[in-house]
Each structure stands twice: as structure tokens, then as C-alpha cells.
Simulated assay, not measured.
Amino acid sequence: MGRELGKAQQSVKAVVTGEDLPPHKIPPVGRLYGDSEGQASQGNAFYSNLKRINELEAELKGRRKDWLPIDEFKAENSEYRLIQRSNLVERFVSKQRNLKNELIEKDTPKEQAKVIDERITKLMAELNQRMKELSQEG
């Protein structure tokens, strides 16, 4: 229920600010709408992948700290190779979201915010694809 109230609030805000609102965020429509290429689905996969990569990073750090072997762990978890990249992408996405919010507050044209959204979605999709490839390898 809280999520639906949040969506309703976002819908009202989008109407007031003139911001584009993706269909999945419109209260009853969101339950029926799906887009595997859109920012919402890419974002969900992206944050799930980040969680997995962060777990791998913590495991590697712990093994190094405790002087445990890491070669076998790396062989079994090829996704570890995305640790640096995912950290960079995560920071970039955060900065881009902040920039987008600033643009919206300054009432800049919606197209500028849309370009930022597209950039974010592209980066998320690239990391998601790479994660998928590495998961299939291992």
C-alpha cells in the first residue's frame, strides 16, 4: 500500500513539474506494464547485480585480510572482475541522478533530464549484460 501511495505522489509531482512518468509508476497501470529494456527493469537488475558484486568484494577483502587463498574463489566467481567497474558505474549513476534532480529543480527542458536517464539506463544495461556473460562462464 505504501508503494502505491508513493507512486501516486510521484504521479502528482510529475504532472506539476512536467516530468515524464514511466507507465510502470502510474498506480494501477504499473502492475500490468513491463519493459525489460527500460530503466526500471535495468535498475532492478543493476542493483541486484551490485549487491552480488559487493558481496564478492567483501568476501575477497576478508580472505585477503585473513591470508586465505583467493585463486579458487576467483575461479568459482568470475563476476569478481566487475568489482572496480561496478564501483565506478555506481558512483557515476549517483552523480547523474543528482544532476538530473538539479535540472528538474531549475525547470530546465525535460529533454535534458531524459538524456541523463538514457545515459544511466545504458550504463546499467551494459553492466547487467557483462554480469550475465560472466555468470554464464562460471
Rank of each mutant, 00 (worst) to 15 (best):
E79L: 07
Q136T: 06
K100R: 15
L21W: 05
G30N: 05
E90A: 14
K13Q: 11
T108R: 15
L82P: 01
E133F: 13
P69L: 10
Y80W: 11
N101V: 03
L127R: 06
L88F: 05
P22L: 14
K95C: 02
K95I: 06
K110W: 00
N54K: 11
K13R: 15
S36T: 05
E72G: 09
A125Q: 05
K110H: 11
D20W: 04
A113T: 13
E111L: 13
S36F: 12
I53H: 03
D66N: 07
N54A: 13
R3E: 15
F46S: 02
N49E: 06
K7I: 09
N77A: 07
A8H: 02
S135T: 04
N54T: 08
G18R: 07
M1P: 09
R31D: 07
K122G: 08
D117V: 04
E111I: 11
N98R: 10
R31S: 12
Q10F: 07
L68W: 01
Y33G: 03
K61E: 03
E19G: 05
I83W: 02
L56H: 01
L88R: 13
V93F: 11
K7N: 09
V115R: 13
L88M: 14
R81W: 00
D71A: 12
H24M: 08
P23D: 06
P22A: 07
N54Q: 15
L68A: 10
T108I: 11
I83G: 02
K7G: 00
K74D: 01
G43W: 00
R119E: 10
S78V: 04
D71R: 12
G30T: 04
S36K: 13
L32I: 06
E133T: 08
L127M: 11
S86M: 09
S94Q: 12
L123H: 12
R64P: 02
G18C: 10
L21F: 07
R3P: 02
E126F: 03
A58S: 14
Q84I: 13
Q96N: 06
D20V: 15
A14E: 14
V89N: 05
M124I: 02
D20K: 14
G34C: 06
T108M: 15
A8I: 12
I70K: 04
A75T: 05
H24S: 10
R63G: 02
R119D: 08
R64D: 10
F46H: 02
R52D: 04
R64G: 13
E57I: 04
L32W: 12
D66C: 01
A8N: 08
A45L: 14
K74R: 15
E105W: 01
N44G: 13
L68P: 00
R130T: 12
